[in-house]
Design a protein around this nucleic acid. Sequence first.
DNA 1: CTATGGCACGGATT
DNA 2: AATCCGTGCCATAG
Length: 469
Amino acid sequence: MLQIQDQSLRPLATAHLAQTMALLCLSNMELRDRIQAELAANPALELVEERVCPNCHRPLSNGSPCHTCAQRREETEAVVFLSPRTAGARGLESDGSPIEREPVAPLDLAAHVLEQLAADLEPEERPLAAYILASLDDDGFLREPSATIAQATRSTLTGVGRVLQLIARADPPGLGTAGPREALLAQLDLVPMQDGRVSIARRMLRETFGELGRREYARIAQKLDVNLRHVREAAAFIRTNLNPYPARAYWGSGRQPQTPDPIIYHTPDIQVSFHPSSDDKTLMVEIFSPLAGWLRVNPLFRQALPDASPDHAEDWNQQLDRASLFVKCLQQRNNTMRRLMEILVSGQRQFILQGDRFLHPLTRARVATEIGVHESTVSRAVSHKSIGLPDGRIIPLARFFDRSLSVRDRIKEIVDTESRPLTDDEIVSVLGDEGIQVARRTVAKYRAMEGILPARLRHGRRERASPRR
DNA sequence: CTATGGCACGGATT
DNA sequence: AATCCGTGCCATAG
């Protein structure tokens, strides 16, 4: 008897493991879809929408985290818990990073561009150019199809095309294009140095624009059959050197501090913030749940089981097993995520609070031994997850394991504060003085990753302070 | 001649 | 086993 039970349990155990692994590498959004699919397919599974704390299952009055769970363990520096708040899709540009619309007065912009084009425009093209510039929206895009414009201004289609080309190449580059993608492409054509990074960037914009917006670099690398590192470099290049909304560009003295991440599609899977208790030393880490509510095996289904007709009994049993397995796997996933985050936030506290420079070197293998799981488990737990930091930034969880981030951050600062463009070799020695030993070639790579142009091309950029001359 | 990017290699990481 | 990362070497642009 026992033998039989044992044998029937063994495949269950491996199934358990396999499914836990499969669930572990899903992001919150993916997990939500997965759960919904399971709910639809399996009547034995039930979603209880009652608001309870996912940690202790005590009822919650409002939507806030369970305070008994969030507040216990006063002495620790971080509290990690599963949050009853759900992470769903969010509006394109709602909270988080307020996008300040800096409405460049359309007239000024138009005048500025017209001035530049004066030399290249045939006299009879001037009204056409003016018409186009006046039709741009706040972002600098042209919503009207060329044909309509040609009709309205009594010009030819080719004429419109020619003027559009000129406008797109004028000072805020990318004006008059159909959208962010086209604007970026137009700007890309103007980059002085056409190297591999630029051509990858171009392909990324052309073929995998959606993935780029979602930061799915791995998928892009796969689709384009390019090294992942090159994809990252190209993405960084786009981010720092191009502007998806041409009319919002400041070509003034102040860099563009508000451009970094205008495209945020999701809430993070995890959010770390300051604990609301009086001292602000304690961090609070919420692991968002994918759905509002919690899953369990439907008790009614279980009760009904003995009454099942013989031909259904088999099916029902199977569904029941499947449902309880699924619930267990989810619990396991939660457990692993919680332990992982405990290690991460306590080990990388400085990084979270003070920025990239303070990321300590950390490997997945070390974390794995620390929490006593296989390293591939850690790998899965970390992948495809994003985490929101107290300062509002949303970064991939995998960045906690980026070995070169702190050095790259330092290089960025060196370049930002340099009085004259420093060569890579000079940067090497500056870093050396600070005790950071890296090869010249490595500095070049990091520079590329950050989208920083080489010293020679860093000269007089961004000095167009005012449109007037 | 100098600064920099491409390629490729070996060791570490996943 | 596959992939990533730091580096050295070499070609090339300026």
